[in-house]
Design a protein around this nucleic acid. Structure first.
Lengths: 368, 368
DNA sequence: TTGAAAGCGCTAACAT
DNA sequence: ATGTTAGCGCTTTCAA
C-alpha cells in the first residue's frame, strides 16, 4: 500500500477540478484504510464487531481526518436527531429563561442540543414553531406555558407520536405529562401573611398574561380571604398587563377611584409590583407604612428595589430539569407521551420570601 | 383507476403489519396520483414544469395527506437547512436576549429558524456548540461576544466555509464581519456628563466579564479625564464581578479603603450599579447628593430603582438585526465571510439616558 | 471478521 | 410534460 509510506496528507479531502471537496465521506475513509464502507460504518456504530487491528487502523484515519458522518445520511437511517425543541412564550422573561436553563442542564448532559423557539408573546407562532420542529425531526418537544393549541392541532400532533411535555399549567390536553408549580398554595400563603401583618383592606393587581396561572392564584387568594372572614373588595381587584407599566397604571386607577387607599396590594408578578411601587411613591405614600405590597416570582431585582419586595420564589430551574427528565424518559423508552397509561403531573412547591415591603416586623432578614 | 372512485381514505398512510406507518412518502403520493415520483418532486420544487392539470391533482393529494418531504432526504440533496445557529454567553442577561430577538426578527422573516445555544458563561462550551451546529448543517452562525476561539479552531472553521458573523467586539479574527457598539464614545459621553455635573473625585467599578467591552470603556473614561485635567485616582478604579453582588462588594471595598468617599461612581453595567447603590444606601449616604452614580446598558429596571439610574442605552435589538442581515447576505450569496475581499464592521452609536442618579439638575425627564 | 448490495426518501440529469 | 434512473452518504442484512 503506497499510502502507508506517505504522510497524513493523503487523507485530506480530495481535490477535484481544483476545488477542495468540503469534507471527508465514508467512502474516502474506506479507501484510505483499504476496507469497505461497511467496515468503517461498523467501527462507528458497532466497534465490537470489528477486529481490533482493523478497528484501530480505521479509527486513526477517522481521527486524523476529523471525519464526521453526514448528519442527513445518518438521519435518513436512524430517524433520530439527538435534538429537542423548546417553545418559550418570551425570552426576555428571565423566569422562562431560568426554566430553559434547567431543560438545557439535562439535555446537554444527555448529549442533546436544544432548539429554542421564542414566541415573543404571539400565540400564532406556537404552531408555526412546532411545525418547524417536527419538520426538523426533533426527538421531543417541551412546551412552556402553552395554550394556543386547538383540539385539531393537538390530535394531529399526537398522530406524529412525538414525545411532548408541558412545563407550566397544562390547560390544553389532560394526558400530556406536565410539571407545574402550586401557585394556589403559594398565593394562599402570601395572602395569609399579609393578613397576619394586620392588613385588612386588600387590593389585588392581577396580570392578564394568558400563560400566567393567575386563576389558581386568585383561588388561593379568595380561599384565604373567605376563611379569614375578611371581605375582598371587588372594586380593588384589577386586571392589568403583566408588566411594569401595567402595575403602574393599575395603582393609579385603583387609588384614584377609591375613597380610601387599601392597606396592602397583592400582585401576581414582581413586574407588576415594581410598577405599582413606582406609582405608590409618586402618590406620596410610604411603603410599607401606608401601603404594603407583595410580588410573585422572586425576580433578581426584587431584593434591590426600595423597600425590598416580599415575594414568592418559584423553582424555575427545577421545573426545567424535571420537565426535561420526563421528556427523556419518553424519548429513551421510545414512546410518545399520550401512548402511555398514566399521565404524570409533577407539582412543585413555591417558597415565600418575606422582606420589607409587606410591612412584616419579624421575619425580615435577607441581604439579596 | 380504482382509487378515483374511493374516498380520501386511500391516501392515508399505509397500514403495514397492523401498524400505521408514520408518514406519507413521495412514493405513496406518486402512486396515489398515478404519476412518477419525479413529477411529485417537480410540483414541490419546480411546479412551473408540470402541466396544470397534473399539478393540481398532485397538489390536492399533498394537501389532503399533509405530506411533508423528508427533512433528511432533502438535506442530503440540497445540503441546506434553512437554519442558523446563535451562540450566546448567557441567556439570563436580557441584553443578549434582546440581541437574539433582533436576530430572530430577520431570521423568521427569511423563513429560517434559529438554534439558540447558551454557553452559560462557560467558554469551553463555545466550541462544543459550534461543533454541534456544524454537524447539524446550519447555513450560518452568529457569535455573540465570542472570545474563546483559538487560532487553530478558527482556521478549522474557516475551512468549512460556513458563513459566520460576530456581534459584539470582534477580538478573535479580524476578517470576520461584525457589528459593534461604540462603547468608548458612550463611556466618554457619560464621563463628560459626570464632570459637567461638577463631580471631581470619580470612582470606577469595572466589570471583569471577558465578553464585556470594558477595555474600550476604560479608554473613553481615561481620555475624557485626561482631557479635562482631572486626575483619575487609581485606587478608586476597581475590578469587580459584573453582577449586582460585584457592585455591592466593590463599593464596600472602595469606600471602606478611602479616607474620603468619591463624589461619583461610574460603572460599566447597570447590574454593578444596582449593587453599588444598595451598598451606598447601606453606608447611610445619599444618591446623588453624597455620591452620584451611573450605569451602562439601560436595563429595564434602571428607571425603576430609587433614584432612577443615569445610564447608556445600547441598541441591542438593532445589533441583532444588523448582524443577521449581514449573515444572510453571505448565506444568500453562497460565500463564507472570510472568502470575500473586505471585512465589514458596523459600529452603532449608543445614547445616554440622563436620569437622577448622576446628580444632574437640568436634563431629567423620563418616567420609565 | 469482512464485503457486496439493498435501501432510507428525495432530487435532477437524461431520456422519451 | 413526464418517466427512468443514478446518485446523495450512510446503515444493515445477507453471504462469504
Amino acid at each position: 500500500m503506497l499510502q502507508r509510506e506517505k504522510s497524513v496528507i493523503i487523507y485530506l479531502p480530495e481535490v477535484v477540478n481544483g476545488q477542495k471537496v468540503k469534507a471527508m465521506n465514508i467512502k474516502q475513509i474506506a479507501k484510505a484504510a483499504g476496507v469497505s464502507v461497511a467496515t468503517v460504518s461498523r467501527v462507528l456504530n458497532h466497534p465490537e464487531n470489528v477486529a481490533e487491528k482493523t478497528r484501530i487502523k480505521i479509527q486513526k484515519i477517522i481521527d486524523e481526518t476529523e471525519y464526521k458522518p453526514n448528519w442527513f445520511a445518518q438521519g435518513l437511517n436512524f430517524n433520530k436527531t439527538k435534538t429537542i425543541g423548546l417553545v418559550i412564550p418570551h425570552t426576555l422573561n428571565s423566569n422562562y429563561m431560568e426554566i430553559a436553563n434547567g431543560v438545557e442542564d439535562v439535555a446537554r448532559q444527555k448529549g442533546y442540543i436544544t432548539f429554542m423557539c421564542n414566541m415573543e408573546g404571539d400565540p400564532e407562532l406556537e404552531k408555526e414553531y412546532i411545525d418547524q420542529l417536527v419538520t426538523r425531526k426533533v426527538d421531543g418537544i417541551i412546551l412552556l406555558y402553552t395554550l394556543g393549541l386547538d383540539e385539531e392541532y393537538i390530535q394531529w400532533i399526537e398522530e406524529l407520536e412525538i414525545p411532548i411535555v408541558i412545563i407550566g399549567e397544562n390547560r390544553i390536553k389532560s394526558d400530556w405529562d406536565s410539571v407545574e408549580v402550586d401557585c394556589r398554595a403559594a398565593m394562599a400563603e402570601i395572602t395569609s401573611h399579609i393578613l397576619e401583618c394586620g392588613h385588612r383592606r386588600i387590593g389585588m393587581l392581577r396580570g392578564t398574561d394568558p400563560e400566567m396561572e393567575t386563576r389558581s392564584m386568585m383561588q388561593g387568594f379568595r380561599n384565604v380571604m373567605k376563611a379569614s372572614g375578611v371581605r375582598a373588595e371587588e372594586k380593588m381587584i384589577l386586571d392589568v398587563d403583566n408588566t411594569i407599566e401595567g402595575g403602574y397604571i393599575g395603582i393609579k386607577k385603583m387609588i384614584g377611584g377609591t375613597s380610601k387607599p387599601p392597606d396592602a396590594i397583592i400582585t401576581t408578578s414582581d413586574e407588576i409590583a415594581y410598577g405599582a411601587m413606582d406609582a405608590i411613591k409618586e402618590l406620596g405614600l410610604l411603603i410599607p407604612e401606608d401601603i404594603a405590597i407583595t410580588g410573585f416570582g422572586n425576580d433578581r431585582m426584587s431584593s434591590l428595589v426600595e423597600p425590598k419586595l416580599t415575594t414568592v420564589e418559584l423553582p424555575f430551574r427545577k421545573m426545567g430539569r424535571y420537565g426535561a427528565r420526563i421528556l427523556f424518559d419518553h424519548i429513551e423508552e421510545g414512546r410518545a407521551i399520550h401512548k402511555k397509561h398514566v399521565t404524570r403531573t409533577i407539582k412543585l412547591q413555591a417558597k415565600s420570601r418575606i422582606r420589607k415591603s409587606c410591612g412584616n416586623q419579624d421575619r425580615i432578614g435577607e441581604m439579596f
